[in-house]
Simulated assay, not measured.
Amino acid sequence: MFTSINEFVKEFESESAITERVLDSLTDESLGQAVTAQHRTLGRIAWHLVLSFNYMTNLGLTYDEPLADNSAPSSAAAITGEYRRLSQSFLRAVRSQWTDESLGNAVNMFGEDWLNGASLRYSLRHEIHHRGQMTVLMRQAGLRVPDVLGSTRDDWIDRGKEPLA
């Protein structure tokens, strides 16, 4: 659980920069990639990350920008642009509407009381989880996966080194 707005902002900025690198690597053609027809496509998962900012209004946050529409765009650039726009609006909302003390306030989410600071932690974990799903689908779609938490196989090859098994 976060107990400091500054602590959250620092971690969110770091994680959202990684997510932006992943989103920047998507192509319009790759958005339809799925494990099976019964699973979300790469584009739906990417759009789900954008829509996740909408859900944060359930915690009482209000944004200075319009929320994302439920229907996913067919453009990778549009998805990435919406992620950038709403992530910044989300950060402004947290910084201006919550304090370190209000991170200990509870809000009813899905029939349970969630502390604001715990909700912020969950939102990051949620994004990281789906970002991981996206990188697998990116590989299946033939895309180069960007550096997420260290060099990728492609980075090692580019350096003329043997990738780690």
Rank of each mutant, 00 (worst) to 15 (best):
T3E: 11
S4I: 06
I5K: 09
E7R: 11
F8T: 05
V9Q: 11
V9P: 04
K10A: 11
F12S: 10
F12R: 12
S14C: 03
T19S: 14
E20G: 09
D24F: 06
D24Y: 08
L26S: 05
T27F: 07
T27S: 13
L31I: 03
Q33Y: 02
T36I: 08
A37F: 08
Q38H: 13
L42S: 02
L42G: 01
L42R: 01
R44W: 14
R44C: 08
R44V: 15
I45M: 13
W47K: 07
L49F: 04
L51Q: 13
S52H: 10
F53T: 13
F53N: 09
F53A: 07
N54M: 05
N54D: 11
Y55F: 14
M56N: 04
L59Q: 01
L59M: 11
L61S: 09
L61Y: 06
T62R: 12
T62I: 09
Y63V: 03
D64F: 01
D64T: 06
P66L: 04
P66N: 09
P66F: 04
L67V: 15
A68G: 07
D69A: 15
N70M: 06
N70T: 04
N70D: 13
S71W: 01
A72P: 11
S74N: 12
S75H: 04
S75D: 14
A76N: 06
A77I: 05
T80F: 04
G81L: 06
E82I: 05
Y83K: 00
Y83I: 02
R84W: 06
R85M: 01
R85D: 02
L86T: 06
S87T: 11
Q88C: 03
L91Y: 00
R92I: 03
R92N: 11
R95V: 00
S96I: 01
S96H: 08
Q97K: 04
T99A: 09
T99W: 10
D100G: 04
E101T: 12
S102G: 03
L103M: 06
L103H: 05
L103A: 05
G104R: 15
A106V: 09
A106Q: 13
A106C: 01
N108H: 04
N108C: 05
M109P: 00
F110W: 13
G111K: 09
E112T: 10
W114H: 08
N116C: 12
N116D: 02
A118L: 14
A118E: 15
R121Y: 07
R121G: 13
Y122R: 13
Y122C: 02
Y122Q: 14
S123E: 08
L124V: 11
R125N: 15
H126N: 13
E127W: 12
I128T: 13
I128Y: 08
I128S: 12
H129N: 15
R131G: 10
R131K: 15
G132N: 07
M134I: 10
M138H: 03
M138N: 02
R139V: 01
Q140T: 08
Q140I: 08
G142C: 07
V148R: 04
V148T: 15
L149I: 03
S151A: 12
T152P: 00
R153L: 10
D155I: 00
W156D: 14
R159P: 00
G160W: 05
